[in-house]
């Protein structure tokens, strides 16, 4: 995907020169292996700052919320779906945006790579579908497809669903993906086992809120955990409070989450909170045939009422 960079720069330069946008939001080269930093470019001569590779996992829709400028934004499949959700939820106007679509082959899982190596990783590069991981004394090659972020491996919307420009030809979508094998396993567990699983899952949480803040859906002016009049959730490291935060946040994302993976990627302690959001995604798909962010014309299932809504749970 690295050849996308030239095209992104070319498009960005043109948009800025023609005055169609005030800024382009994209990624610049990071200072750490497998990390890039979201950035903006306001002058055509600065577009060389923009890069694209397999480490652009942060969801850029997050940087559009309530902005007033005309913006060129670089969007993978998932970013584009969150941009759709943003437009539906009035967090940005379609007319403000020039969406530079990036057909995506999945981002690389930096934690997986780090966990496979005993030594510190000094650089990660890509060549012909191979990922080359360098440490001080060794160089290892892996198949790129084996190293995808978990959400990317399950992704069925790699192409942007909405765009004005394209940085490359559309890619083939993954077919016959079983998105919910792990969720079905959890669903089948007896209550005690589930409780234990979530107890353990969130035990390392430090309440830094990186998951919430990296999430393009979490734009509330005051999050429920930050409310103080009344205070809904305690502020300590109490496991009940921590779980309350994670459970409720996931519910707030029901029918809106695109499984972009920003939450899990951002977590400093590597918690897979996507187990919660994907359960809700699965329920929305099964109950309402709904996948978030695919169309500007339909509102998410939980903010509309339909007479044929399933209600088997009401006795």
């Amino acid at each position: 995907m690295s050849n996308y960079t030239d095209k992104i720069r070319e498009i960005s330069e043109r948009l800025l020169k023609e005055g169609r946008v005030d800024m382009v939001i994209g990624f610049k080269q990071g200072t750490m292996p497998m990390m890039n930093e979201p950035c903006f470019v306001k002058k055509p001569e600065d577009v060389s700052k923009l890069v694209w590779d397999s480490h652009c996992g942060i969801n850029l829709a997050n940087y559009l919320t309530d902005r007033k400028e005309k913006i060129g934004v670089i969007a993978k499949g998932c970013d584009s779906r969150n941009i759709v959700t943003h437009i539906i939820e009035n967090k940005i106007k379609r007319e403000q945006l020039v969406i530079i679509g990036v057909p995506c082959k999945g981002m690389i899982d930096r934690r997986k790579i780090a966990s496979m190596s005993d030594a510190e990783i000094l650089s990660v590069a890509e060549q012909n579908g191979k990922v080359i991981v360098k440490t001080k004394d060794a160089e290892k090659r892996y198949e790129r497809t084996d190293l995808l972020q978990k959400n990317c491996a399950l992704c069925v919307h790699r192409n942007p669903v909405i765009y004005d420009e394209l940085a490359a030809d559309l890619v083939e979508e993954q077919k016959n993906v079983d998105r919910y094998a792990d969720i079905r396993e959890i669903e089948a567990m007896p209550p005690d086992e589930k409780w234990h699983l979530f107890d353990d899952l969130f035990s390392a949480c430090i309440r830094c809120y990186a998951c919430r803040n990296a999430c393009p859906l979490c734009y509330c002016p005051t999050c429920f955990v930050d409310e103080s009049r009344p205070q809904w959730v305690g502020k300590s490291t109490d496991p009940i409070d921590t779980k309350t935060f994670h459970f409720l946040r996931a519910y707030h994302c029901a029918g809106r989450c695109t499984d972009c993976g920003a939450c899990e990627r951002a977590c400093p302690v590597g918690i897979n909170m996507r187990l919660l959001t994907r359960k809700l995604e699965k329920d929305c798909f099964e109950s309402f045939g709904w996948e978030a962010g695919l169309s500007l014309d339909q509102r998410p299932p939980l903010d509309v009422y339909k007479t044929n809504d399933p209600e088997d749970f009401i006795k």
């Binding site: 950035c39 430090i206 803040n213 502020k235 300590s236």
Partner: peptide, 26 residues
Amino acid sequence: EEAAFACLNCGTCTYSCPTCWCFDIQ
């Protein structure tokens, strides 16, 4: 403006920092 643009305002840096000492009383 540029330095802060990417920041998510999460607490990761401050919580992982050995020299950050701020606290809140509840």
